[in-house]
């Protein structure tokens, strides 16, 4: 446990030193400034057809505020994860570089602990950055619309969870291929294409009318990380609405555990 903590800490510090943090925080700040400009120079509430804003009367249940939050959440989810994947894709390939991995493996740290440390360290890096972004937006919504409901802050946890899901896949791909480009491309493929398509598999199936196809789609739906469904859950949580189905969360947890375990298994067999 101690070793996992050490590796997490060193991963965190490494991200800091490699300026990954700076890059992430810089783009987050830019994004916040864009939203700030939108808030300052347009009458956001009016844009969503609300009645006159009188601070305290608004709440999360107010349809106008809810619409604004949704308007913010979707790009936040997309951008946040896009950046997170980009920043973390090199963590494992960096670790596996010749001359570096030899030294790591010669230390009193097991290969399992190395992987777990990299996992938690990477998740912590992304959480800090995502929290910064979400917290900034929360302040804007608070000052701009008078809505201070803390549910919105939970978005940072959900986005980090989705990252953890994709990151576990990237760790596996990184261990198997040592390539950060491959890890990044597959993650984007899942996040931007596969998961959205699979999550609307029922609609697609009605057009195709093939049972085998539906079964195949169903299979992949459960095997591929369900980032789209988690995106819907993000909206529910951040707006303080009840969650419709917990299944994506449970399936994702199982995916993370399986991907990490499989990474440990492959890693343990390899020579460096």
């Amino acid at each position: 446990m101690n070793n996992v903590w050490t590796i997490s800490k060193l991963t965190f510090r490494e991200a800091f030193s490699r300026k990954i943090f700076l890059f992430f925080a810089g783009i987050s700040t830019f994004l916040l400034l864009v939203f700030l400009a939108v808030f300052l120079f347009t009458d956001v509430a009016a844009l969503f057809g609300s009645v006159k804003i009188n601070g305290k009367e608004l709440s999360g249940s107010n349809p106008a505020v809810a619409a604004i939050k949704l308007f913010i959440l979707n790009p936040l989810y997309g951008f946040g994860l896009f950046l997170a994947i980009f920043s973390s894709a090199s963590f494992i390939p960096h670790m596996l570089e010749k001359g570096n991995i030899d030294l790591l493996l010669s230390k009193p740290i097991s290969r399992r602990q190395l992987i777990l440390g990299k996992f938690f360290g990477g998740v912590a890096v992304v959480f800090v950055n995502v929290f910064y972004l979400v917290f900034g937006l929360w302040l804007m919504i608070g000052y701009g619309l008078g809505d201070w409901s803390v549910d919105f802050l939970l978005a940072s946890l959900v986005i980090t969870f989705v990252f953890a899901l994709l990151y576990s896949l990237m760790i596996l791909l990184g261990i198997v291929s040592r390539s950060s480009v491959l890890a990044m491309m597959i993650s984007y493929l899942v996040f931007l294409i596969l998961s959205p398509v699979l999550s609307s598999r029922e609609i697609i199936s009605t057009f195709l009318n093939s049972e085998i196809f539906s079964a195949v789609m169903n299979f992949f739906y459960y095997v591929v990380p369900q980032t789209s469904d988690l995106g819907s859950i993000l909206n529910s949580i951040a707006l303080g609405n009840p969650i419709e189905s917990y299944s994506p969360i449970i399936v994702s947890l199982a995916f993370i555990v399986a991907a990490i375990e499989f990474s440990v298994f492959v890693f343990s067999k390899k020579d460096y």
């Binding site: 490494e14 030193s17 490699r18 570089e97 010749k98 001359g99 570096n100 030899d102 030294l103 010669s106």
Partner: peptide
């Protein structure tokens, strides 16, 4: 190790 590589930001 031969040809060791330390994190070069250190």
């Amino acid at each position: 190790p031969e040809n060791h590589k330390f994190p070069n930001f250190l």
